[in-house]
Computed example of a mutant assay.
Amino acid sequence: MNSTYSFFVKLVLVQCLVIACASQVYDFFYLVQQWPGSYCDTSQGCCYPTTGKPATNFSIHGLWPNYDNGSYPSNCDSNDPFDLSEISDLQSKMQVSWPSLSCPSSDDTSFWSHEWNKHGTCSESVLTEHAYFQAVLNLKSKANVLQTLKNAGIQPNGGFYSLTSIKSAIKGGLGYNSWIECNTDTSGNYQLYQIYLCVDYYGSSFIECPVLPTGYCASSIKFPTF
């Protein structure tokens, strides 16, 4: 094997490795927001954070990297754990937009830590910890889901609304399709629990979802009060 050919083969192998590694990062994000009334209206119940009852609004669950084939990476870098000091300037906004409702009551930081360690570290080649949390706050602000639903006459008043009308309202208001996750209340009624919107690779703009999660919702679902 002459030196020129050997160099060419090595170059091709390096390029293939780079492409393979790059393809393993992620393809897009799910921005997941949850309705606190549905989180709390289950047999498990909820606990308000130590800062008090959260706002009557959809709150952030997370920004989750995903692959176009429906799978997703997780816990990508144990060497870059959550550091609260990195987002000290965002903390007050996050307490409003990203509260923890799990029990026992907490100051929310364990929730944020879990989201960064499991999901955020998989996007750190594009978004630092601060950039990741700032991106989520920006996206939530862009997607004012509650107001979008209210504009279509869909209110969190304990009433039942068709799943189709909810999806249509979000599509009409935001310009993109969504995926709705339901849970069940203490009486077994399906209710509006989480709304998934898809976000581009850079965590900056909404896109049409390359693939949707799976799960079941009834054709008519409850939108509980909070």
Rank of each mutant, 00 (worst) to 15 (best):
Y5R: 14
S6W: 01
S6T: 13
V9M: 10
K10Y: 10
Q15E: 13
Q15C: 14
C16R: 10
L17A: 14
V18Y: 08
D27Q: 07
F28S: 08
L31C: 10
V32H: 05
V32P: 10
Q34E: 15
S38D: 03
C40D: 09
D41V: 00
S43W: 07
G45S: 03
Y48E: 09
P49C: 07
T50I: 13
T51N: 05
T51F: 13
G52C: 02
A55W: 00
F58M: 10
N75I: 00
C76H: 06
D77G: 01
D83R: 11
D89V: 12
Q91H: 05
Q95R: 14
S100K: 01
S102C: 01
P104F: 07
D108S: 06
T109C: 00
H114A: 12
H114N: 09
W116I: 11
N117F: 00
G120T: 03
H130P: 00
A131E: 15
K142W: 00
K142L: 11
A143T: 01
V145M: 12
L146D: 08
T148F: 11
T148M: 08
L149A: 01
L149W: 07
P156N: 04
P156K: 01
N157A: 12
Y161K: 01
L163T: 09
T164Y: 13
T164A: 12
S165W: 04
L174A: 04
S178G: 04
I180E: 07
I180T: 06
E181T: 05
N189R: 05
Y193N: 14
L197E: 10
S204Q: 15
S204F: 06
S205Y: 12
F206A: 05
L212F: 14
A218P: 05
K222L: 15
K222T: 02
